[in-house]
Amino acid sequence: MVWKLSPVSVWRHRIPRYRLIGKECKKCGKHHYPPKLACPYCGSRDLKNIELPRSGIIETYTVIYEVGEEFRHKAPVVIGLVKLDDGTRVIAPITDVAEDELEIGLRVEATFRRIRDGDHFGVIGYGLSFRPIRTNVSKTSS
């Protein structure tokens, strides 16, 4: 058995990954993700957890054909840099999307997905992807 995913690390990161918990700097007020122990903008270590907005726009994206080992069955992998509604940026897969729908500025919302299948024996890695906001089935626009 090959351990492709650590059950411990999957567990340790579950809250920021499942609920989009980032940090707010108490000094400069900026939000960031993934959560750090010091503000990447002003260096302050005085931070607090914050639940980030679950919708935003695609600021830039790529369709990856030359994927890593564990993503061969998912190729091509669409990765977006999403600017959330509060300005925080997140790197995440873009799902339920056709390549010709992708564009900079596309509005997207978070959806809980199976990110890493690991191997047949190991743990499954869940997390958030983003999908285009289709008005009638959107959670964030209703």
Partner: peptide, 16 residues
């Protein structure tokens, strides 16, 4: 973790 590769991140920058 999410499938981003080094080339993928460079691609994000290049498109932008």
């Amino acid at each position: 973790y999410y499938g981003a590769t080094l080339s993928g991140i460079a691609a994000l920058i290049m498109r932008y």
